[in-house]
């Protein structure tokens, strides 16, 4: 039974510990909402790579608010071939949990 004790409440550490940003939760939310189908973390697909987004908004004021607006309002987004679609509205569970949305945006901006 000693084995169980060792495996018990041990260290808990995160590889990407950054002040305030829960990367794993952000990525989980992104996967649930199929974000990665169009946005690679570093890879451009139909939408810009998140690293490119972070680059674009680096140091800019109101970046967080702008991006939160982008993913919650359903505003039109332009595709590489020219057509436009309403950008998917990110859903959280429980619904409208702004803390999760904020965490997601903060993670994107940190890349």
């Amino acid at each position: 039974m000693t084995a169980l004790v060792v495996l018990g409440f041990g260290l808990a550490f995160s590889a990407h510990a950054m002040a305030g940003v829960d990367a794993e939760a952000a990525k989980a939310l992104a996967r649930q909402n199929n974000c990665f189908k169009c946005h690679g973390a570093t890879k451009e697909k139909d939408g810009p790579a998140y690293s490119a987004v972070a680059e674009k908004y680096k140091g800019k004021d109101g970046a967080e608010a702008r991006l939160i607006e982008h993913i919650t309002s359903g505003e039109k987004a332009k595709f590489p071939d020219g057509h436009e679609e309403a950008h998917k509205i990110v859903k959280t569970s429980p619904p409208d949990d702004m803390a999760q949305i904020k965490n997601l945006i903060d993670w994107i901006l940190s890349l």
């Binding site: 084995a3 169980l4 060792v6 495996l7 041990g10």
Partner: peptide
């Protein structure tokens, strides 16, 4: 049956079970 697997690093894990 109770089995746990703990990843020490990418290559190694320790498993234990009852």
């Amino acid at each position: 049956r109770f089995v746990g697997a703990y990843r020490l690093n990418t290559a190694s894990s320790v498993l234990a079970g009852y």
